[in-house]
Simulated scan of single mutants.
Amino acid sequence: MPQHKMITINGIRYRPEDVPEGYTPPARRTPRTLSTQQPTPPGPFDPSAAGVDAVLAYLETADHTEATRVLDAEADDKARSTILGKREEILAAKEGAGDGDSGGTAG
């Protein structure tokens, strides 16, 4: 008995010689096509989409400008007191870390 490669069309299996006239198989996606698609870059951190612990952890690594942006977004959206209560402390730490020679006296 000869081997036939069955073709499935809308869930129905056909032998190649029994395929309806005019049928064209759908284009296949090759690995090359898939690998050329660029992932979308992530947008800016959204504090409303994260829990309190995640926001605080992010703020530890963010620079002063980003921390200010995130804290302002938090104040405009969820306004969680756990995060906003630490606003001054967080921003003061960022200002101190940003100045390389502050706090010292010349002389």
Rank of each mutant, 00 (worst) to 15 (best):
L84A: 08
T68C: 06
Q38W: 07
R32S: 10
T8P: 00
E74Q: 12
P26S: 07
A93N: 08
L84G: 09
T65K: 11
V19F: 07
D77Q: 14
G11W: 00
G100C: 03
T61I: 07
L59P: 08
A62Y: 06
K86D: 08
T65V: 14
T8W: 00
V19W: 04
P44C: 04
A92N: 14
G43Y: 00
G11A: 03
A92E: 13
P26M: 09
V19N: 08
E74N: 06
K94H: 01
K86L: 15
E95T: 07
A50W: 05
D101Y: 02
R32D: 11
L84M: 13
T33R: 09
G98Y: 00
T65W: 05
D46L: 07
A97G: 15
H4C: 04
T33M: 13
D76H: 09
Q37I: 15
Q37M: 14
G22M: 05
G51F: 06
A75V: 13
E88A: 11
A54I: 02
T8G: 00
D18G: 06
G103I: 03
P47G: 09
L59V: 10
D53H: 01
E66V: 14
L56C: 01
E88H: 01
T65P: 00
G43P: 04
M6C: 04
R87V: 08
L84V: 10
G43A: 14
T30N: 02
G100N: 06
R32P: 00
E89L: 14
A75N: 12
P47Y: 05
L84F: 11
V55T: 15
I12C: 08
L59Q: 00
G104W: 02
M6F: 03
G104I: 06
I83Q: 05
A67I: 05
L84Y: 11
R13T: 12
G51N: 14
R13A: 15
E21T: 02
P41L: 14
P16R: 10
G98N: 10
R87E: 03
G96D: 07
D77C: 10
D46T: 06
R28I: 12
D76R: 15
P26T: 02
A67L: 06
P25V: 03
G104Y: 04
T30M: 08
S35E: 14
R87I: 09
A79T: 10
Y23P: 01
K86C: 07
A79Q: 15
Y23E: 04
D63E: 09
P25I: 00
V55E: 06
D76S: 12
P25E: 15
A49K: 11
A67T: 01
A106K: 11
R80L: 05
S102T: 11
E88L: 03
G22L: 04
A49R: 15
L91I: 13
S81P: 12
P20A: 09
S35N: 14
R13L: 05
K86V: 10
G107V: 08
R80Q: 04
P16Q: 08
E89I: 15
D18Y: 02
D46R: 10
P2M: 11
P25Q: 13
I83C: 09
